[in-house]
Nucleic acid binder design. Sequence first.
RNA 1: GGUUGGGUGGCCGAGUGGCUAGGCACAGGUCUGCAAAACCUGCUACGGCGGUUCGAAUCCGCUCUCAACCUCCA
Length: 497
Amino acid sequence: MTTELKLHNSLTRQKEVFEPLNAGYVGLYVCGPTVYSDVHLGNCRTFTSFDIIYRYLQYKGYKVRYVRNITDVGHLTDEGEDKMSKGARLAQLEPMEVAQKYTNGFHAMMAAFNNLPPNIEPRATGHIIEQIEMVQTILANGFAYEVNGSVYFDVEAFNARQNNDYGKLSGRRIDELLAESRELKSQDEKRSPTDFAIWMKAGEDHILRWNSPWGEGFPGWHLECSAMSTKYLGEAFDIHGGGNDLKFPHHENEIAQNVGSCGCGGARYWLHTNMLLMNGRKMSKSDGNTITPQQLFTGDSEHVSDSYSPMVLRFFMLQTHYRSTMDLTDAALQAAKKGYQRLMEAWASLGSLQATGGAQNGTVGKEMQTALAEAYAEMDDDFNTPKALAKVFELVSRINALKGGQLSLAEVNASTLQAVRTGLGTLLFDIFGLKEEGADAGAGQETLSKVMDLVLDLRAQARAEKNFAMSDKLRDALNAAGIVVKDGKDGAEWSVG
RNA sequence: GGUUGGGUGGCCGAGUGGCUAGGCACAGGUCUGCAAAACCUGCUACGGCGGUUCGAAUCCGCUCUCAACCUCCA
């Protein structure tokens, strides 16, 4: 079954058939983190969503250039202090030390979630020249003005000359923005509250500073994405992604900068992931409604009753569509943990199934082929992982029934079995990016396996002699050691956890 | 106040004019020495009020309500 890839374009608020600018190639830009503190769980959700999108595009045969930036300058706090500088001041480190520390942490966390690294991971501080050039171009085009060493984007001038397009991504209108703009501090230099800085003069105590035609300063927050996406993907490219909260003002201003500098709008498809909530509310450090990935991994938090591994969390994320808010609750995580285990056990069972029938495929075999094809088709529909997963679970119950004998293996021919193994494996591991946890324990695993063979052999002997006191004692002791024994019709099985 | 998107069974979460989403939980059953697992069956819902339609959770209007954004945020 082959279907066309459709995706929801935030620009048009519609699902559209995806057609790349250059056949066979995809340029994908995703707004990365500002590296001034530990990576937030919400970041993990967004980047995992785009990881699956990246993986799926590759599966579809596209040669993808995936660019995800690191913002290490320009992002100011409410007080107007650069986030990097603030982190450095508090920890008594060089700003670049702060950036490196949290970049390293970010990479480690991405690896824990089994997210593939992007092809290019440009840093804002590594592209000061490109940003200065873009400011110059925007100035030359008459969409910005300089005041006291700072350069501001002139939103109203831009809007007047661009068909009132400013705000089209987020649905905002300038007059409404003006009417509602609140009293903001230190914005006297701006001609209008909607204008935004593309270059800022550095104050005397500002550490991060570069020479520019306007004196020493630093680039505005939104500029790096425009400059770097243009540099690596071109003035027009295919897909731009990011969190929903970046739609306004970040992405809106990015578009304005792109149009203002080259007359073209950058990305043709905008994809936005939705927010991660906890217990129905946005995660927020200030009111205690927050949890770190690390706390989830260890279970060390008042918000959870158990520990949840990165793959359980990934599975949990797969159960929600990327454009929906996702509510993190302990009960939902418990459900995900069990669901993930059931899925992985079925995957292991699939490997042990042996076709017994002839070349003809029975009903069960056909149902399995259909379910698998439908799972893939769901991915074509705006990367609908929850629906694809639902189809996968239709396969899971067939696999379990075949293994348990409730369904006959004579109903499934060898080629179907092989096709399901290949197709499901690709979907689960290459596209969903799941992996079997604990399976890579290495040499210790092999030793344990041999010991377990011995123990289960002894236990089987005890059971054959109806020495149930002994067999139960063995099972209880193994349980206490974290090993679960399950008696099946073809002998006992065991698993860790 | 404005913008954007929601309100679905015990919980999470898809769907979007007629056809069982799925996961978890719960109850009954099959299997089993017991247990666990697995399988089968059941619980069959769409915020409220109107309207369109042969038919609406799905479309339209009104209303209540939640979240995010508008101020740093993935």
